[in-house]
């Protein structure tokens, strides 16, 4: 098993020639629940997209599960599953929950992409894992935000990945769904050896289960390591600014920016 989920050295990433991430050196352990956090525009999503070959690597190198990107991109995409921000999903397409859950698995399978009994079983198992099998034949767009997010996680899981990359899975999601998502990620790591790298604004729901955090600000890595070591008042003020208030709960520091804690 590879020892790192994502490993970057001197990584510059951009869209066109404009760098969004600059000089990032990072080694996220695997399997783990790891968090990438930082303010808007810090480059969090860009780091995930670079891992999947969806953003242009300008210089340096990045490996996912030990496999270089973009050199062996097909292998990376086969072994990794991505959970996009749910705002990126189109609400105009009327799909049932089971159809959404089958999607990543059938894409990886290649043409003609017809589902077999084995595919349906895998999708149902994944829905069960995230406690959404009850909604199997419901219309996806009629579910709540938290339920949709769990279905998108099931979609990723049905493709039997070694690593999940999740982009803001906790945003616009109710507290109960946040707790369930955190529980799912912990169980995946502990029971199946599947790691997760989570981009989030809010580390709070994941703090009890997260192993590692990387703090980004303005495209640069500010700090990385176990939560207690990386989430220091100094580091939090570096990424959220000197006006951020920092509180310590259970040995972990959180930043309070405006009326939201991070």
């Amino acid at each position: 098993m590879p020892s790192h989920a994502i490993e970057a050295r001197g990584l510059d990433v951009g869209y066109g020639s404009r760098p969004v991430l600059r000089g990032v050196d990072l080694a996220i352990p695997h399997p783990s629940v790891s968090v990438i956090m930082g303010p808007n525009g810090a480059g969090k999503t860009t780091l995930l997209k670079a891992s999947l070959g969806l953003a242009r690597i300008l210089s340096g190198e990045i490996r996912v599960l030990g496999v270089p990107v973009p050199g062996r991109l097909e292998e990376v995409r086969r072994r990794v599953a991505y959970v996009p921000q749910k705002e990126e999903v189109s609400w105009g397409v009327p799909l049932r929950v089971i159809d959404v859950a089958l999607m990543a698995r059938l894409i990886k399978k290649g043409p003609p992409r017809r589902p077999t009994r084995e595919d349906v079983d895998a999708a149902e198992e994944a829905l069960e894992f995230v406690d959404m099998l009850w909604a199997r034949d419901r219309c996806f767009k009629k579910l709540s935000g938290g339920q949709q997010q769990r279905v998108l996680i099931a979609r990723a899981l049905a493709s039997k990945p070694e690593l999940l990359l999740l982009d803001e899975p906790l945003s616009a999601v109710d507290a109960e769904s946040r707790r369930k998502i955190a529980e799912v990620l912990a169980r995946l790591r502990d029971e199946k050896g599947v790691g997760s790298v989570v981009v989030t604004h809010d580390v709070n729901p994941l703090a009890p289960i997260a192993d590692y955090v990387a703090l980004l600000s303005e495209g640069r890595l500010v700090a990385a390591g176990p939560l207690a070591a990386a989430l220091t008042p100094e580091n939090l003020r570096k990424i959220y600014g000197p006006v951020a208030k920092v509180v310590e709960v259970g040995g972990i520091c959180y930043a309070i920016v405006g009326d939201a804690h991070r």
């Binding site: 996009p84 990126e88 999903v89 397409v93 799909l95 043409p111 990359l165």
Partner: peptide
Amino acid sequence: YREFVYSSFDPVGSEAHGL
């Protein structure tokens, strides 16, 4: 059919999974 529907539903996610 599936390729068109998947691209319409979630272009970024579909590309990330290899479509």
